[in-house]
Simulated scan of single mutants.
Amino acid sequence: MSAPIVHGGGITEAAARFGGRFEDWLDLSTGINPRPVALPSVPQQAWHRLPDKLTIDSARAAAASYYSTNGVQPLPVPGTQAVIQLLPRLVPAGRRVAVFGPTYGEYTRVLMAAGFAVDRVERAEELGPDHGLAVVVNPNNPTGRTFQPEDILAMAAVMKANGGVLVVDEAFGDLQPDLSVAGHVGANDNLVVFRSFGKFFGLAGLRLGFVVANDAVLDAFREWLGPWAVSGPALVISRALMSGETETIAAGILERRAGLDAVLDGAGLKCIGGTGLFVLVEHADAGALHRHLCEAQILTRKFDYDARWLRIGLAPDAESDQRLADVLGRWNALREGDVARPGDVARPGEC
């Protein structure tokens, strides 16, 4: 088994290394709504009993409407990561896998650990007859790269002609519903769409996602996961929130993103990508900047495959924006005596 990937959210580990109470840290290492929505009322029965068919079907119907699936009933799963672990079972024996990268590293790690050769690709033209499975994250994590639906469907057509499956991870798609291909699954039986519930609603700890696919794929995932894979409370909460008003949630996220943009712009940092829930920053001394922020009890996400990158998530409020701005201001002040190197900073307005 390959080494585990270090993901964002490791506040307790960071506190143990750099000091301070973990409660006092500002976690900007994840791509999650920093203002979790208020939880709806959950009846005692949902805690007391195993989830029944009505509870499951109600959550699936709400997800079908929320994700605009054109009648396909999404399968609730215990987080997207749970079904990523099962992806090797969808790859025909002896075939290679294509992953549009750089992207969320668990896809390559899991597939390689299962013995499959994985090709990192950047363009649809790189998909070939050897590929039994292709994975594209849209919008992408961490770069924010996007493909239009027609481009995704063209990829699915290529994969189908080669007897392969296309998996589209739309974990960060809630703020860009026009990019989704969930509504095209019914007409494309080799298309599988993953959706994440926790990021947009700020409830990552609920461990809930949905798979949109044809009946055969959904039946396979259901069998592999086993009965009662998702808790009754998670199903009740998702049904209520996906059936409710979400424009205010989206507006709140975009307001927080604007706050982050203003801070990074003011610090002269070079923003090279992102989504509504995070920004990707490029800096020649990203490792040193990451450490400087950690020493101020602010956690960001660095990458072992590109030492120039930091992913910075949204702060919960303007006070936290100012905290980040102050720490970045001290960073710039400490560097004023250094000789600037090309690419170190960007001009204000480039975020």
Rank of each mutant, 00 (worst) to 15 (best):
Gly8Ile: 14
Gly8Met: 14
Gly10Asp: 09
Glu13Trp: 06
Ala15Pro: 09
Ala15Tyr: 13
Ala16Met: 11
Phe18Trp: 15
Asp24Trp: 11
Gly31Gln: 03
Arg35Met: 08
Ala38Arg: 13
Pro43Thr: 10
Gln44Thr: 11
Gln45His: 07
Trp47Phe: 15
Leu50Glu: 11
Lys53Gly: 05
Lys53Thr: 10
Ile56Glu: 14
Ser58Val: 13
Ala61Gly: 10
Ala62Met: 07
Ser65Trp: 09
Asn70Met: 12
Gly71Ala: 11
Gln73Asn: 06
Pro74Ile: 05
Val77His: 02
Gln81Ile: 07
Arg89Thr: 13
Pro92Thr: 10
Arg96Gln: 14
Val97Tyr: 08
Val97Arg: 08
Val99Phe: 08
Gly101Met: 04
Pro102Tyr: 04
Arg109Ile: 13
Leu111Cys: 10
Leu111Glu: 10
Gly115Asp: 03
Ala117Ile: 12
Glu126Trp: 04
Leu127Ser: 09
Gly132Lys: 06
Leu133Met: 08
Ala134Gly: 00
Asn141Trp: 14
Ala157Trp: 01
Gly164Cys: 06
Val168Phe: 14
Asp174Ala: 15
Gln176Met: 03
Ala182Val: 05
Ala182Met: 04
Val185Gln: 04
Asn190Arg: 04
Leu191Trp: 01
Phe194Asn: 00
Phe197Ile: 01
Phe197Glu: 05
Leu203Cys: 04
Gly205Ile: 04
Phe210Tyr: 15
Phe210Met: 01
Val211Tyr: 01
Val211Gly: 00
Ala213Lys: 02
Ala220Gln: 15
Trp224Asn: 02
Trp224Gly: 04
Trp224Met: 14
Leu225Gln: 01
Gly226Val: 02
Pro233Asp: 08
Ala234Asn: 01
Arg239Thr: 10
Arg239Trp: 02
Leu241Arg: 05
Met242Cys: 01
Ser243Pro: 07
Gly244Leu: 03
Glu247Ile: 00
Glu255Asp: 15
Arg257His: 13
Leu264Arg: 04
Leu264Ile: 09
Gly268Leu: 10
Ile272Leu: 06
Gly274Phe: 01
Thr275Ile: 12
Thr275Ala: 12
Leu277Arg: 03
Val281Asn: 03
His283Met: 08
Ala288Gly: 11
His292Met: 11
His292Val: 10
Ala296Asp: 06
Gln297Cys: 13
Asp304Thr: 13
Leu310Ile: 14
Leu314His: 11
Asp317Leu: 03
Ala318Ser: 07
Glu319Gln: 12
Leu328Trp: 12
Glu336Asp: 13
Glu350Met: 07
